[in-house]
Computed example of a mutant assay.
Amino acid sequence: MVTLHRRPNWKISVYAGDHGVPHFHIEGPGFRCSVAIATLEVIVGAVPRRVLVEALGWAAERQDELQVTWRELNP
């Protein structure tokens, strides 16, 4: 697992050996979701709206970096 962004109560990570479409995880205490990198749509799970908006804003500016990290960890 690589943590790419961290806030006080949540983080964005990409896991090695993961499955499905290229995605990242938004995780915090009591919540977790997976988000498709290409579309920034939530695949599964749920997070507080405030966290989702902030995380997707960060991810929208770094989709290329997220894709590269996914490919490195999931060849």
Rank of each mutant, 00 (worst) to 15 (best):
V21Y: 08
P29N: 06
R32S: 14
L4V: 10
V14H: 05
R7G: 01
C33S: 08
H19P: 15
V47S: 10
P75K: 06
R7Q: 07
I12R: 04
E54K: 06
R32G: 04
F31W: 13
W58K: 00
T3G: 03
A38P: 02
E61K: 06
Q63S: 10
G30N: 06
V35E: 03
P48E: 07
A38F: 06
R62Y: 07
G30V: 00
P48N: 06
Y15E: 14
E41L: 12
T3K: 11
V47C: 08
L56F: 04
C33F: 04
L56A: 12
W10Q: 06
C33T: 06
P8W: 01
E61P: 00
W70Y: 05
F31M: 08
M1E: 07
A60M: 04
W58Y: 04
V35P: 01
H5S: 04
V35D: 04
D64I: 01
A59N: 02
T69L: 03
N74D: 12
N74R: 09
H23Q: 10
E54W: 02
G45D: 12
E41S: 14
W10G: 07
R62D: 11
V51C: 04
V47H: 13
V21R: 14
A38L: 09
V44R: 15
Y15T: 05
V42M: 12
L4G: 07
E65N: 09
A38Y: 08
A36E: 15
R32N: 11
W70V: 00
G30F: 05
W58Q: 02
C33W: 08
V21N: 11
E72V: 04
S34T: 13
A60N: 09
L52C: 08
P29M: 03
H25W: 13
L4C: 03
A60L: 03
T39Y: 03
G17P: 15
V51E: 05
S13Y: 10
A60S: 15
D64M: 02
I37S: 11
V21Q: 12
H25K: 13
P48H: 07
S13V: 14
L52Y: 07
L40Q: 10
P22F: 08
E27I: 03
E54C: 07
E61G: 07
I43K: 14
F31G: 10
R71C: 01
C33G: 05
T39H: 05
V53C: 12
W70P: 02
